[in-house]
């Protein structure tokens, strides 16, 4: 995945079954962000792999004051990349089991 300066990782072990999973997001390189970033730390949140859209969650972070409006897309892309990886891993596990 592209290095967006924003890192997203699992905040819990993926059991491969739950639709809603805990993720943790933090800024690794604030120079890659357009807006001024206030050092706030890692943001933990739950994400529904089946129903939710990464860009919508990113927009909620912007509206909550965690990121500047101009960085919403970057945050959304970072979440999308991680979600795609989680889904890919799950599919691979299912294929391997079959």
């Amino acid at each position: 995945a592209e290095d967006t300066g924003v890192r997203v990782e699992l905040a819990e072990e993926d059991d491969g079954k739950k639709a809603s999973i805990a993720l943790k997001l933090w800024v690794e390189d604030h120079k890659k962000l357009k807006g001024k970033y206030k050092e706030s730390g890692a943001i933990e949140f739950t994400f529904d792999l089946e129903k939710e859209v990464p860009e919508v969650v990113a927009q909620e972070m912007v509206e909550s004051g965690l990121f500047h409006e101009s960085d919403g897309k970057t945050v959304g892309k970072s979440i999308r990349d991680r979600v795609a990886l989680i889904k890919w891993r799950r599919e691979r596990t299912v294929s391997a089991a079959a």
Binding site: G41, A42, I43, E44, F45, E60, E63, S64
Partner: peptide, 27 residues
């Protein structure tokens, strides 16, 4: 506490906590 909770109007909860130093990329 260093942990803060930010609740969005849509009801989503964001929990903000310090990032461990070891996980930060070296600049």
């Amino acid at each position: 506490s260093a942990t803060a909770q930010v609740v969005h109007s849509a009801g989503r909860r964001f929990i903000v906590s310090p990032v461990p130093e070891a996980r930060l990329k070296e600049q």
